[in-house]
């Protein structure tokens, strides 16, 4: 590390070091170094954190420097989750949130509308967005995607349902990212899937299925050869006076404001009531943890799809099995 002045040498030279550089900084240190920043946006339970780790391990196997990390708060299935992988051929002088991703992996397109997830914020010019969707065009018609970026898509969830029987897309998303970045061989990806899924205690059979899924996604996409550019950023640090207004109490005085956060987009499966079979026993109403079931005049439930998170407890508890589930694809 030529940049760290040897302290013990400095001691003997004392003040001399302040005017005379001891070590000449080689030019290569001032060159722009290769670094790829991938930001995963998913929902709790989809496997965003594991995806970032699989991509990290696969790149590490390839001899790259790697840093991966998740951001989460109070963990909940369905809530927006963000995870990052930084890949570089040299020291990574970055840490924490990736503000300016080269590649975004959007594991659930409904997150594009989330004011909390801020999915496309900061993406670099000529960067890329991968959408877990059947068609990027349809997504583009319904959500605003930034210009000057490349878009790729593949329906990972359908592949996962078919091959794993579950809508968990950690391996699939990592495979997509690894292929699009183009720095990882298929064999390294496989090794990483095995390492990371063993770490979280998956069965051998499930790991095998994930490897197959990873292979399928990897071979279905092509590297993007990303060469991104820094986007212009405006930075304004606000003075303290602007913060110290009379809004300083953290009291929440608005009653029922959780309705403002429409959690209906958290679902992957939705419960549907079969009113023929329903006996109006109200068991579902008692069990719904989100109060997203309202009782109609006839005592039968009506589901508030704006706020139902798709936990499916009603489906499991319904005595006459009058609640069915449907896979929810963004339908336009």
């Amino acid at each position: 590390m030529p940049l760290i002045t040897n302290y013990f040498l400095a001691l003997t030279l004392d003040f001399y070091i302040l005017t005379q550089p001891l070590i000449v900084i080689p030019d290569k240190f001032l060159m722009i170094l290769m670094i790829v920043r991938v930001r995963f946006h998913g929902r709790g339970g989809q496997g965003a954190k594991t995806a970032s780790r699989i991509l990290g391990t696969a790149s590490f196997v390839e001899g790259m420097n790697v840093q991966d990390s998740p951001v989460y708060g109070a963990e909940r299935r369905g809530a927006p989750v963000t995870a990052f992988t930084r890949i570089s051929d040299s020291e990574i002088l970055e840490r924490g949130y990736v503000f300016d991703p080269d590649l975004l992996i959007v594991m659930d397109a409904t997150l594009l509308a989330s004011p909390v997830a801020k999915v496309t914020d900061g993406i670099r010019k000529k960067g890329a967005i991968f959408l877990n969707a059947q068609s990027a065009n349809i997504i583009g018609e319904h959500y605003t995607l930034p210009s000057d970026v490349r878009i790729a898509s593949y329906d990972l969830t359908s592949s996962a349902m078919e091959m794993l029987g579950k809508p968990i897309i950690s391996s699939a998303s990592a495979a997509a990212a690894a292929r699009l970045v183009g720095l990882v061989k298929e064999s390294s990806l496989e090794q990483a899937i095995v390492t990371e899924l063993e770490e979280i205690g998956l069965s051998e059979e499930m790991i095998k299925k994930n490897v197959m899924l990873g292979r399928k996604i990897f071979s279905s996409l092509e590297p993007l050869e990303l060469a991104t550019e820094e986007s212009e950023k405006k930075l304004r640090i606000v003075p303290l006076e602007m913060i110290t207004s009379n809004d300083g109490l953290e009291d929440i005085i608005a009653v029922g404001n959780s309705k403002v956060a429409k959690t209906g987009s958290w679902r992957i499966f939705k419960p549907v009531v079969d009113y023929e079979k329903c006996t109006a026993c109200t068991v579902c109403y008692a069990y719904c943890p989100e109060s997203a079931l309202i009782l109609r005049q006839d005592g039968k439930p009506e589901i508030d799809y704006d706020n139902c998170k798709g936990c499916l407890i009603c489906y499991r508890e319904c005595p006459p099995k009058a609640i069915n589930i449907e896979r929810e694809v963004i339908a336009f």
């Binding site: 930075l235 304004r236 640090i237 606000v238 303290l240 602007m242 913060i243 809004d247 953290e250 009291d251 929440i252 005085i253 608005a254 009653v255 029922g256 404001n257 309705k259 403002v260």
Partner: peptide, 24 residues
């Protein structure tokens, strides 16, 4: 200097407002 970016303050103020008044 007390670091706080403009956009952070705006998001924060929105959240504080939501805590004071329901906007449905």
């Amino acid at each position: 200097i007390f670091l706080m970016r403009q956009e952070e303050l705006e998001t924060t103020k929105n959240m504080v407002r939501t805590a004071k008044e329901v906007q449905i």
